[in-house]
Design a protein around this nucleic acid. Structure first.
Lengths: 203, 203
DNA sequence: CATAATTTCTAGCAGTGCTAGGATCGACTC
DNA sequence: GAGTCGATCCTAGCACTGCTAGAAATTATG
């Protein structure tokens, strides 16, 4: 029985290797360079082994995207809990989001612009890492003093969606040169100041 | 001389036909269905004639996108001047933007997500229709009572960029199912209320 | 060691963007 | 009008893509 166990472990390792290699290749040369042949070359197997792990090329992109959501969730949570005054959580999370998008453009592209087949905002079909990402936003815009009560503000879900849209817009438009990259900090400041003003009513 | 004139006119008409057909085909079956063969079939010419009009496939997408910017500029301007209280211009333009994105998803994709090679935000290299689009936003967020003074508010440019990002995020995330489509009106209301509050200081 | 089962690769299909070369058509000259 | 020339167009093909059937090689089993 240890033989089949070893084979399953090898298969899992090779699975990871493919995803990792696809991600690296995409980050280095763009997603259009991630062809099945080139990817097979890099992992030192022939093309058909890719199809023994993934249904098609899109499934590989999807796997990379899912990894990305897990990474993003970790970074957003870290930024939130590390925010020195808890009220600064929104800014910290927003900055972490933009930094993530800028640091891993191809990964971000897989997560948010390429046609992967993932249910978003579905209570039972949306993968956990994806829900975790959104939850960080909801928590941080919902309860600005207290924490860990996801829906302290009934408008929190809506506001989180608006925040997400704005951040996504900033990230994508600057990435592909549709907006100058240098004003980004000022734009974020303006967005934060108006969407969640730190006014006298600190709730 | 009338012979060459006629030929040039025919060439222009065929140019328009190609762009129009590419746009229709993309809107009907998505951009990945716009192959040079299928496009050539639809315009009832062979593939190489496409390349006598455009350098490559990307140039066709770019031409469609440029048409789209012209269309969008017209609709944004129309929405702005038709806004009954001039202060409602922001809402009118924002709604027109989202309506445009929802009504022509493939066109919007060409304009804002596909890799076309267009200089944005460059004073001398950015095509006019593109600048017109952005100008509508700047005017409407800058001077909320008076009009036609593009930079009444020095922050207008920045605020317009933030608006644009948020609208673009809303449009793209809802389009490819990354965000439920039904809350869109509520999200727009929230965005407008916070980004340009109609507060007592109506400037 | 021989057989069976599994894994892997070679070779190929249909389709892609793009292009070189020859065929076809129009216009101008004698 | 016949013949030449030049612009226009199409056929055929290249290298590449995602994907797969069937042969080859490798591994486990009796």
């Amino acid at each position: 029985m240890t033989a089949t166990q070893r084979r399953e472990r090898d298969r899992r390792q090779r699975h990871e290797l493919i995803v990792r290699t696809a991600r690296d290749l995409a980050e280095a040369e763009g997603w259009e360079a991630v062809t099945t042949r080139r990817l097979a070359d890099r992992v030192e197997y022939s093309q058909p082994v890719l199809y023994s792990h993934f249904e098609n090329r899109d499934a590989i992109v999807r796997a990379v995207a899912l990894d990305g959501f897990a990474d993003l969730a970790i970074e957003l949570r870290a930024a939130r809990v590390a925010a020195s005054p808890p009220g600064a959580g929104v800014r910290a999370v927003a900055r972490a989001y933009l930094d993530f998008a800028a640091a891993h453009p191809a990964l971000y592209e897989a997560m948010f612009t390429l046609p992967i087949d993932i249910r978003f905002a579905s209570p039972d079909q949306t993968p956990q890492p994806l829900r975790d990402c959104f939850a960080q936003l909801v928590v941080v815009v919902g309860s600005r003093a207290g924490e860990d009560e996801p829906f302290a503000d009934p408008e929190a879900g809506l506001l989180a969606e608006v925040y997400w849209s704005a951040l996504h817009g900033l990230a994508t438009l600057t990435r592909q040169g549709r907006m100058p990259a240098d004003g980004q900090a000022a734009r974020l400041d303006l967005l934060l100041a108006r969407l969640t003003p730190p006014g006298p009513d600190s709730r």
